[in-house]
């Protein structure tokens, strides 16, 4: 079969975890199907990361390294990446379904006439062709999708596939390629990181989330404290976002983010169907709600019927003790 190409994503000079997840899966698929696993690295000052991609299984890494590519510019990245794909001629292209990957993938699909499935949670190869499973309706159902194009692209949801151990002795051949972005009509004026070291909801291991039961924006301090102890992200229900208590980017659910952490702690969230769709693939769910009839208890592994204003501080104290 043809080769598999993993498109790396770099954040603050490091490969993102989803890139390692893709390399791990790509290595397994390439070995099973008899193809090679290759990597694609685009950015500024990224060449040294090719070695790490080699340790995770890439036999060759195409590197487009240029100061002009320091900030993500969809148009520029797509031009450079599409050229690499044309040269590398893989059968399958894997990219992380991060904000950046989901912007890049459809650009590549159109430029290359390649089929694309977004936000996949499982990928396999059948007869040299990609078969993916992906959630639809924010996880209320799943679809299995097959491909008929020569190049087949899947963007894969972060945090779903495991990372295998790197092989310190393995290395990748580095192929430096043209990093000229060509005619670009988009200018990046500025990039502002407002969140500091805030953990991205869709990539968090633990999420502490608050809903209408929080009663006001000031009470989220309580959830922030618990979250910081657990190294967790803070989420919110649509009710809390629509009330203006939390920013839109924090919303979990069908018109917000679909999340799949190891632990989801829902505080004062009743569990509207559009919220459940966005979080019910979490591995473990804790619900704190004073209404014993709330639908959230139907999906919770551990339900606490009680006043969250009493329960959350106790939980915080318990976590402090456990972490001590």
């Amino acid at each position: 079969m043809a080769n598999i190409l993993v498109i790396a994503e770099v954040k603050e000079g490091k490969l993102k975890k989803v890139t390692l997840e893709l390399l791990s899966k790509g290595k397994e698929l390439a070995a099973a199907a008899g193809g090679a696993l290759e990597g694609c690295l685009v950015g500024s000052g990224v060449e040294a990361l090719a070695a790490e991609m080699g340790q995770y299984g890439a036999s060759k890494v195409y590197v487009a390294d240029s100061g002009d590519l320091a900030d993500y510019n969809g148009e520029a990245y797509a031009n450079v990446t599409a050229k690499i794909i044309q040269d590398a001629a893989p059968g399958i292209v894997l990219v992380g379904a991060s904000i950046q990957g989901k912007d890049l993938a459809p650009r590549l699909s159109a430029k290359l006439g390649a089929g694309l499935a977004s936000d996949c949670t499982n990928i396999s190869v059948d007869g040299g062709s990609l078969v993916v499973t992906r959630p639809i309706y924010a996880g209320k159902a799943f679809e299995t999708r097959t491909f008929s194009s020569d190049i087949q692209i899947a963007s894969v949801r972060p945090n779903v596939l495991p990372v295998s151990d790197p092989d310190a002795g393995a290395s990748a051949e580095v192929a430096k390629v043209d990093a000229a972005a060509g005619d670009v009509k988009t200018k990046v004026l500025k990039t502002e990181l407002t969140a500091g070291d805030k953990i991205e909801l869709t990539e968090a291991d633990i999420i502490v989330s608050g809903g209408r039961g929080m009663k006001g924006p000031e009470n989220y301090a309580m959830l922030e404290e618990l979250a910081s102890l657990l190294n967790a992200a803070v989420g919110a229900s649509r009710a809390a976002v629509d009330a203006g208590w939390r920013p839109h980017g924090d919303q979990v659910g069908q018109t917000g983010k679909t999340v799949n952490p190891n632990l989801y702690i829902a505080c004062g969230i009743s569990g509207a169907i559009q919220h459940l769709a966005g979080m019910s693939s979490s591995k473990c769910i804790v619900a704190i709600n004073k209404d014993a009839e709330a639908p959230i208890f139907k999906v919770a592994d551990y339900g606490i019927v009680g006043d969250l204003f009493k329960c959350v501080p106790i939980l915080t104290e318990e976590v402090k003790k456990l972490k001590a």
Partner: peptide, 27 residues
């Protein structure tokens, strides 16, 4: 370039444990 082969429902979540009582005990 792609086609849906089939749809499926997500795995049902097993019923969990629900705790009622004094927060100082159950939390």
């Amino acid at each position: 370039k792609t086609a849906i082969k089939e749809l499926s429902m997500p795995p049902e979540r097993k019923a969990g444990q629900v705790f009622e009582g004094e927060p100082e005990e159950i939390v």
